[in-house]
Design a protein around this nucleic acid. Structure first.
Lengths: 352, 352
DNA sequence: CCGCTTTATCAAAGCGATTTAACTATGGGA
DNA sequence: TCCCATAGTTAAATCGCTTTGATAAAGCGG
């Protein structure tokens, strides 16, 4: 065990440099009132002793911490989810570039009941919270709507409260996905929904689906909407029910990739071929989407980028450079094999 | 915008309760020297005013922060990986139970070069670091081996330095997987490796594989070992090469599930059936393993539990309750369909 | 009623920084 | 030569809480 080297304080630096304590502090904070000469001298002893300012002391004096909390809902194991993972990666990268640290938090009951979401601010532990995956059951966010405490919804929004957010254009995404199926000639399209009751963005996708039906003159049939609980297993069950009750279905639009993948698995079991018998389109473009057999046609969400952007805005919010952020990011369809569009193209090419 | 309520300090509480500042602090810290009566009185005004002690001020006085850093290597998008996700979930849950906060860090070049891993301690920003996914190229961990700063490897270890760790028994896991294939009668077993040069636990699996061959009297054939880079795509390529060069291979042991799944995908493409033509066994038991078709037989790693345990030990380390932690967790085979063991059982049952 | 414990409370000195008002040279203009 | 503005540095107050040694009050046996 090495001798535990003494930790230096600003006082040591002051003494060793032959200046006052405050001078050192001013150097540390790049204050222009310090001459280049003393500045250099102080910097040198800082370097020599390997001095590191105590972050807690600074935070205390500054009254902010340069730390952001990233809040995720309590799913089975929240952090294990690629969706969150991508966004968090984006947030992290931008945050560290800006000199911010990331604190992890999960919106468990305990977190909500003990009002941790306020405590974190009030204990001066963080400068802001970024909430990924909020839904309408998270009533507590109402308490963060007054703008007193920097708060933001990431890839999500709500019509109920006036909150800050950065979100994909789910409506446009949903519209593209549905339109893609309709263009390929599908008329009986099953829709695997999930979280529609509590997630605004889920609602948006469903609505855009209906919109496409409407503008295409296809009758909306509630029997074709089945809930898949946003999970793979749910997607399997939903597909089974959908196909059993409506054998005439030729395409399925799942509100997220997990369910789409589940549906594909079920069809495989049932001996149905994708896309020949049933076309499938998903939403999110998670890594497995491209890896599936056949590759899943889906709406690509630039989650990493969204995380970065949201973080950038959050810091601006904290610094008071902006007072509101409500940004909508465009997203686009990624065509793979699960809808047969490529097959058609190939066929078309052949007949030419 | 609501009126920004004044933040109370310990001084306000003292005045409002008619006691001294120190008394309030003693109450806050459950010091038995305070009588029940005053204690109750102080607690009441704390409650009434909704007072929250400033965490930075406490950290400054305490000289520790009750914050743990979780460090992950720089993969493409580190947090998007289920492997890390599960472990982080475990760490988070245990940490918050123990009153600790989790800070996220990525071992990027910048992080290493600027010696952030030391700064975090020296700036008194965290009490300890838990490193998930270290490998032998992370030379900097040598600087954390002196025990001066609480540090721990999670589900990983190294023979080079004397570090703290909590790790699965990879050798035993690998042994079981290989043994399973041999018991099912396989003699020509392909091994898809990955990270063997830099990851100790990868080496362990490979070695245990060789050990099984050895004790089973099967000749070790280097041609049957192919690198799959630990990724799905790599697994596909490895499987292709393996099967092309060695058509007599009847089973594949992949060092992780991602590669096993990739191999299965490739075999599907090649028209080979799993398990009838080639049996496959993986390692890790990621969610997709059970979801694959056929279900992947694999070694189950209780990642969430490992995270919890590691966190628990880390806190003990910080409190000086232990001075070294080097724990090895047993792990077991989970039999699904990819090796055909169930088929055999069923067949055996029929002939009875 | 007197010393002696025991118990409860408080004053004061930190923890390690920031920040502002005040002070000291220095140099230029009148 | 005197005055004043300017630049550079510092003293002192602050941030909000912990902790220890001192003090006061209360309890107790004789």
């Amino acid at each position: 065990m090495s001798e535990s080297k003494k930790r230096y304080t600003i006082k040591d630096i002051a003494e060793q440099s032959g200046v006052s304590l405050s001078t050192v502090s001013l150097v540390l904070n790049d204050n222009p009132r310090i001459s280049q000469a003393t500045r250099a001298r102080v910097l040198k002893t800082i370097e020599r002793l390997g001095y590191q300012p105590n972050r807690m002391a600074r935070a205390l004096a500054w009254r902010h911490t340069r730390t952001l909390a990233v809040l995720v809902p309590q799913l089975r194991h929240a952090f294990a989810d690629v969706y969150f993972g991508e966004i968090v990666s984006g947030i992290y990268d931008r945050a560290s570039r800006l000199g911010y640290k990331i604190l992890l938090e999960v919106a468990r009951n305990e977190f909500i009941e003990s009002k941790e979401y306020l405590q974190l601010y009030d204990q001066k532990f963080i400068d802001g919270i970024m909430f990924i995956g909020a839904n309408s059951r998270h009533r507590f966010i109402a308490e963060l709507a007054d703008g007193t405490r920097p708060f933001m919804l990431v890839n999500n929004y709500t019509k109920e409260f006036d909150l800050n957010y950065v979100v994909s254009n789910y409506r446009y995404g949903g519209w593209q996905a549905a339109k893609h199926l309709v263009r390929l000639g599908h008329q009986r399209i099953g829709f695997i929904s999930g979280g529609v009751a509590e997630i605004q963005t889920s609602q948006d996708i469903l609505e855009s689906f209906k919109e496409v039906l409407d503008e295409s003159g296809i009758a909306y049939d509630p029997k074709l909407i089945v809930d898949g609980w946003l999970t793979e297993e749910g997607g399997m069950k939903a597909a089974e029910e959908l196909l059993r009750q409506n054998p005439d279905v030729t395409a399925i639009f799942a509100l997220n990739d997990k369910m789409a993948l589940g549906a594909m698995k079920k069809m495989n079991e049932l001996g149905l071929r994708v896309p020949q018998d049933v076309a499938v389109v998903g939403f999110d473009d998670i890594p497995q989407a491209s890896f599936a057999i056949p590759g899943l046609t889906t709406i690509h969400q630039p989650l990493y980028e969204i995380g970065k952007l949201a973080c950038e805005r959050m810091v601006e919010l904290i610094h008071g450079k902006v007072s509101r952020v409500q940004e909508v990011i465009p997203i686009y369809l990624t065509v793979r094999e699960s809808c047969g569009a490529r097959l058609k193209e190939a066929a078309a090419a052949k007949t030419e």
